[in-house]
Write a protein that binds this DNA or RNA. Structure first.
Lengths: 216, 216
DNA sequence: CACTCATCGTACTCTCCAGTACGATTACCT
DNA sequence: AGGTAATCGTACTGGAGAGTACGATGAGTG
């Protein structure tokens, strides 16, 4: 967004400006993610920076501008391990991947990000798209890719890989995740995570019906 | 909460007070669910009521008080059709139930309720518990009851009914629901709903693995 | 009728906070 | 050195909105 503004005539000035901007965004991020949009004040950010408000406004012309920049940067930074380590059976791989995924989703950072996206989503319609494409969709594509490989190997029914991938993610995380969002303080120990994911994987692969075969 | 305060010495006065209170809560509810907590003003509620601000504060001593009351009442009122109509096969029943469920979840009211729960959840820690028990949990129990019946009939693997129920609900609604939350404006036509639920049901019952039987 | 409680309207205080004005200071650049 | 951009601190404006004060008007009760 701000790299290619124009050829920076001076070197140190331009560099400092970038640095400062980054620092502002970083501080703003902390405030926004700790208190949300409404309860964060520009004055507090300026004070925290040690600088003056004037300077703040010379970088971002409004609070919403700053928020957008902070969220942008945050989303860029949230690049958790999307990789699917293809070791062992399909079942083993899904278990391993699922546990790692769920563990990440239960981290405070991700919780806060979701909370912000949902709470302020109305105010920034574009944010939703950006967020969705960079985080959940990217994830789902990565797993879909793996699932399609397993389809080719003959270990997985031939279905829409992306949808199956989304289904798997939802199965793994929404129960504990939403409980956590609602303040129910669910058990998020490694053992609980493992159990949650195991149930999901088993159902995902084998289903619950008895005495019948796949319709397809 | 306010029924058993004390024996109302006068009859008409007490009755009117209850009525008025209910009306206030109702109006407040509309405002809160339409604009959220932060963007709702007490003055607007008073104006909408036709009454004066003084009266408002004679019923609720603060904005947060009123919000709590409104949410309380709302949660009481959210009693969508939890019943599972047991007609046709397991598959048919799940499809019918799932579609109705998803349809309800995509309504603006439910969306807003979730948004409020998540956004203001920090401010009202108790709310999360109340909400969870009255809405999602109640739902999941209703379906779990049906699933356990199907287990007894031999059509469903013998597993934890509540967890399976939760899994089914999550499979059905989270994809479209969250897309809608993020402002992605997904297709929510009856056809799209049907398709989403069909995929969920099929996976739920039969799984995706090929060439193997249930491990249990 | 006398009394009381609820309500009303209006105008007010108080606080918080985004955003601005302005003059002074400190880098950097040529 | 002299010019220029960025920065600083402080004090201000302006608006929004929670909550209050107060005097007036009814309606219900005894």
């Amino acid at each position: 967004m701000s790299e290619s503004d124009e050829v920076t005539t001076s070197c140190k000035r331009g560099a400092r400006r970038e640095e400062k901007r980054a620092k502002i965004v970083q501080v703003a991020q902390r405030h926004f993610t700790e208190h949300g949009f409404g309860n964060t004040t520009m004055s507090a950010i300026a004070a925290d920076l040690g600088g003056s408000k004037t300077t703040l406004w010379s970088y971002f012309s409004s609070k919403e501008d700053l928020f957008a920049a902070a969220l942008d940067d945050w989303i860029d930074r949230v690049k958790p391990v999307f990789d699917v380590q293809r070791e062992g059976t399909l079942q083993e791989t899904l278990n391993r991947y699922g546990c790692e995924f769920l563990r990440q989703m239960l981290s405070p950072q991700i919780q806060t990000l979701f909370r912000l996206m949902i709470a302020e989503g109305q105010r920034f319609p574009k944010m939703g798209h950006i967020f969705y494409e960079r985080a959940p969709l990217r994830r789902q594509k990565a797993l879909a890719c793996y699932l399609e490989w397993e389809m080719a190997e003959g270990n997985f029914r031939k279905v829409d890989g992306l949808r199956a991938s989304a289904q798997f993610h939802h199965l793994c995380f929404y129960r504990l995740f939403m409980h956590s969002m609602w303040g129910l303080e669910p058990d998020t120990s490694p053992a609980a995570i493992r159990s949650e994911v195991e149930e999901a994987v088993e159902m995902f692969l084998f289903g619950y019906a008895t005495g019948q075969q796949h319709p397809a």
